[in-house]
Design a protein around this nucleic acid. Structure first.
Lengths: 134, 134
DNA sequence: GGTTCATTCAACCTCACGGTTGACGATTCA
DNA sequence: TGAATCGTCAACCGTGAGGTTGAATGAACC
């Protein structure tokens, strides 16, 4: 499935295009919590399994997701490093410098203001409520 | 031409899709050095002016570029702040290593649960120059 | 072997992209 | 006034996205 396109321009094309869809962004977000199977990833969406399989194909061709076969199931893994060039591209435009640190700061401040939403580094992990536990 | 889509999810769609094209990324890059006219932006490309005009339409609809008319020429300006939500999304995934993914996951879940965590960019009217919509 | 489960393939639909060309409106200037 | 310039619009073409359905593949289970 040609996991990586050699041309860096085309690579950016593929990654940005892969992220330009809410279903695929949701898939990427869910893969943050760990590897998942195709049908597991497809479960929350109101569309056919074939449609999700296509989305995963686009993510895989863009190098954002890798797939490994285990028996009759296929496990999908987020390849975070593949997002790096696109992130660097956006950084290059200063879009993340002043104003956006502000936004992140807001986000983190917000996080701290809520009880045990995001624990500090030395916090006990058991405190985390199961927000993402489908 | 509806410069900004209100739905943040659709906003991400539009910005990522706008950046998923090398011509449009080159346009955005050139706009870093300052405002430019449409034909000035079109000059380096081996395509018709109408094609570049379409690209600018896509960038404008995504809010990445604003246009103001001055006589018979139209000046295009890069709206860096419009890249912010996409940059936050990307940068978060791209720069945190695996150890931080848990925290990141919590952060995103939190951000989604609070719609006003990332304020929409139409909040500051001072920043927006006279956007003349044909 | 036959069946069920997990996933993809193939064909089809609709719609939008990315490009072209030609006509058009608006503006500037001789 | 008339002509040149700037930019968009409209129509068209080919391609691919995003979805459907149904059949096909491949592994696991009885």
């Amino acid at each position: 499935m040609t996991p990586l396109a050699p041309d860096p321009e085309a690579q950016l094309d593929a990654v940005f295009a892969a992220l330009a869809d809410p279903t695929r962004r949701a898939i990427v977000s869910r893969l943050l919590s760990g590897d998942r199977t195709v049908s597991d990833l497809a479960a929350p969406f109101d569309m056919s399994l074939a449609a999700v399989s296509k989305h995963l194909g686009i993510l895989t061709r863009a190098g954002v997701v890798s797939q490994r076969r285990d028996g009759r199931t296929k496990w999908c893994r987020l390849e975070v490093h593949s997002l790096r060039p696109a992130a660097v591209w956006m950084e290059a435009f200063g879009s993340f410098d002043a104003a956006d640190l502000d936004t992140l700061e807001q986000l983190f401040a917000l996080a701290e203001s809520l009880p045990s939403a995001i624990p500090p580094d030395d916090a006990d992990p058991d405190e985390i409520p199961d927000q993402i536990s489908d």
